[in-house]
Design a protein around this nucleic acid. Structure first.
Lengths: 208, 208
DNA sequence: CGACGTTTTTTGTCACGGTTCAATAATAGG
DNA sequence: CCTATTATTGAACCGTGACAAAAAACGTCG
């Protein structure tokens, strides 16, 4: 086990070699998980992706399930904190519409640029054993809460069209965004074009 | 093997027992596939769901992969023919908007009422070995073509908002619809409410 | 250089799941 | 009923993949 001192205290400027390997394994697991799904993710695939032998993984993680659980949690948490960070940078006088547009961009950028983790979560969150997805689902739930607030703000400002049910609308919008992981790739043009179109469609779908 | 005579010719009024078992297995496979994903789908689960022992499956299908391939193809084809059938019932003078609204309803009803097959396709289409998904993907592609036509009609009628790119818009809409399989259930209220909201949002997202 | 802590590989065990096959049960046709 | 065909099962085979244990390699510091 790596000395805890190094973990918590002043790490040697950059990360220790050990924790870099740990991270490489996590990245590799996310990558495989996003392509093959939970049951299709084999330790040997992860090992190959990370350029180690399979049993080496056990030096860093107690089991396959622990590793995958960590991927799910880290990925979900990153998604939430990224959205929070982006919203926090908006000027305080921002309108509900502006905040929603920013959230759309944040979601798409994070999903399509850091795609392995997001993709892994999106594809697997609902078909994992409860024990593995519990912590991740809590993050996803918090993520949803943020969006719930955004839609509520739009409604409070009187701009939400009256025939859209807020919870349904929120899930439909998030669905459109989540699903981009299944089909979008850089060959379809610049990410910015997708972001612009998505923002426009979302706002027109929600507003009067 | 069942006599081919029975297969192709006048079946004994209702289906033969053999083909009913075959169908029960297909349904069971769709159900398991939709919950567990490709690699997580075990023959023993399918067998249990269909109330037979695992080896019985081999009397009807040559291998696990053949069975799953059939689920994918049948499900995808059903989705496409259902949409075509619904569109065919519309009066000939229907507007592009009316046709799109009908397509949204058709998609959601089929996905959420015949959910096992649709869910299986939606979740697995993009993470299956090419050999297994080839025929299904051809159907999915045909399904996309129909939608491409619907959006093109809207554009031709001059009603498509100029800042939405048709291919991106189509995929965003289909994403919102596909994703409902991940979250919607009857506890969230009547399906009709979802359909109405989705139709309204889609049309407002696309039209001037 | 050499001893020690860290990291990685080698080797092996074990359970699980797809598949086969021979044997048996159900069923229909004469 | 009896027999031929259809349908299903139980037992066994076999490859694979998670995991354990121990040995080897690596690096570092005295």
């Amino acid at each position: 086990m790596t000395k805890n001192v190094v973990e918590d205290d002043e790490q040697t400027a950059t990360k220790s070699k050990s924790s870099r390997t740990r991270e490489r394994l996590l990245d590799a697991a996310a990558e495989v998980l996003s392509r093959k799904g939970f049951s299709g993710t084999r330790l040997s695939d992860i090992a190959e992706q990370a350029c180690v032998q399979a049993p080496a993984i056990y030096y860093y993680y107690p089991s396959r399930e622990d590793l995958i659980e960590e991927v799910m949690f880290v990925g979900a948490a990153a998604m939430r904190t990224h959205l929070e960070a982006v919203l926090a940078t908006l000027p305080s006088g921002s309108t509900a519409s502006e905040r929603i547009a920013a959230a759309v961009e944040a979601h798409l950028r994070h999903e399509l640029e850091i795609s392995a983790y997001s993709h892994a979560i999106i594809r697997n969150a609902n078909q994992l054993p409860e024990a593995i997805s519990r912590r991740a689902l809590a993050e996803v739930s918090a993520y949803n809460d943020i969006w719930r607030g955004l839609v509520a703000d739009l409604q409070a400002s009187g701009q939400l069209r009256p025939d859209v049910d807020p919870p349904l609308a929120r899930m439909l919008v998030l669905g459109a965004l989540n699903w981009t992981a299944e089909w979008w790739n850089p060959d379809r043009g610049p990410l910015e074009a997708l972001i612009t179109t998505a923002q426009s469609m979302v706002l027109h779908a929600l507003r009067r």
